[in-house]
Design a binder for these strands. Structure first.
Lengths: 222, 222
DNA sequence: ATATCATTCAATTAATTTATTGAATGAATA
DNA sequence: TATTCATTCAATAAATTAATTGAATGATAT
């Protein structure tokens, strides 16, 4: 095997993995799996994809070694096979945001309620946690909260936020977070909270990035 | 536009960019463009791809905003549109190496002459440059050397190394480098040098990564 | 042991991607 | 202004990918 042949084979191999990533549904699956291992059914429901279809895409990811499979009782749980996978997704996301005006426009349009939407970064959260007495709210589905959430956060799924409006203290700042930059669950919650008289912020990173910023996580023991 | 529609559009946009990356030839083009802006013809020759085919792939990259186009005289130069593109390629490369045993096997097999191949990392190069009196050799094609190389390096394209064997001093250590981890030009040179009685190493990073390790680059004024 | 049911498979169709060929463009130089 | 030639376009055929449907697995738990 000469150098040209090795090179051809190398790029082919890496392109195979890249191809497995090059599908909107599969990217969304990875973004969801970054929250923690979940069964096929959960994926199918949460990203609005027929079950057989979700399974098929998972097979593609599995063949590319991007996900791990583990059976627990009745369900088969899929998980990202390691941190490199999320790293790639992060850099793809960043590239998409910076290269593609379409992407930026989409997010900007959806977040045009920016007067109501104050975003804070990881460092600001750490500072607020140290100096202020804030309430940290995890607005993802409860399943994902249980798999892992920021230390001290309470779980209020975005679908249930209205029921908690009366219970939340108006005199404390509230920081809401969700899956990550492309996730809009926190946006909606923060908007509603601010319009209801609270002082609320959204965290600009999601649970998967937290540890790299020195934000400790914890999980609900099962 | 509701949240589901925004999400679908977002993932679709990012998947479009990812798809543009998901082809072996296009990945190799990006790896080459990371060395500096070159015309279509240069790409076609160096990655062994018919001209019309190379052009076609470049159009795909262009449509995805991954490359910039600039005419200079007779030639049209293509370049990576920004650092994010190389970041993605880097993380894909890392993922490919870690996930895919095929990739590792390929590189290992090609480098099975490991007795002859001592690899040093960026930090070790910096140390050697400070303490020892070494010779740093850029073994890429001269065009790429001129576009940018490590400060103080001399250009000895790997195709011409045999002609320089007599001129190189046997009493100094030699460090050779090339395009990056997937590039084998330095491997071949280092192997030949060591078998010819020199003390030679290969640098494990390429020119594009150098600056992030604090290794200064310089270019030949045109 | 068997019924349940979460998941995968299989087969079809439609859509997209790729390589190849030769012709067309169009900017730059003489 | 004409000619050169680097690059792109266009058209075709082959190969790959994706969605859909309903049937088939096969491990779990009763």
């Amino acid at each position: 095997m000469n150098s040209r042949e090795v090179k051809t084979a190398l790029y082919k191999e890496i392109a195979t993995v890249t191809k497995a990533l090059g599908n909107p549904h599969r990217l969304e699956i990875l973004d969801l799996l970054a929250q923690g291992p979940v069964p096929v059914e959960y994926i199918s429901e949460h990203i609005n994809l027929p079950l057989a279809n979700a399974s098929q895409h998972l097979q593609v990811l599995k063949k590319a070694n991007l996900v791990n499979v583990e059976r627990k009782g009745k369900y088969i749980f899929y998980a990202l096979s390691n941190d490199h996978v999320y790293d790639v997704w992060k850099s793809l996301r960043k590239l998409g945001f910076n290269q593609n005006q379409e992407v930026q426009k989409l997010v900007d349009e959806y977040r045009q309620q920016r007067e109501d939407l104050q975003v804070i970064c990881a460092e600001e959260l750490i500072q607020k946690l140290e100096t202020n007495d804030i309430i940290l709210v995890d607005v993802r589905p409860d399943e994902e909260y249980r798999l892992g959430h920021i230390q001290g956060a309470v779980s209020i799924p975005y679908t249930e936020i209205r029921e908690y409006l009366k219970e939340l203290p108006v005199d404390k700042e509230i920081v809401a977070y969700c899956r990550g930059p492309l996730c809009m669950m926190a946006d909606n919650v923060v908007q509603l909270l601010n319009r209801s008289g609270f002082k609320a912020y959204r965290l600009d990173v999601g649970v998967p990035e937290c540890e790299s910023f020195g934000i400790a996580l914890e999980a609900v023991a099962t």
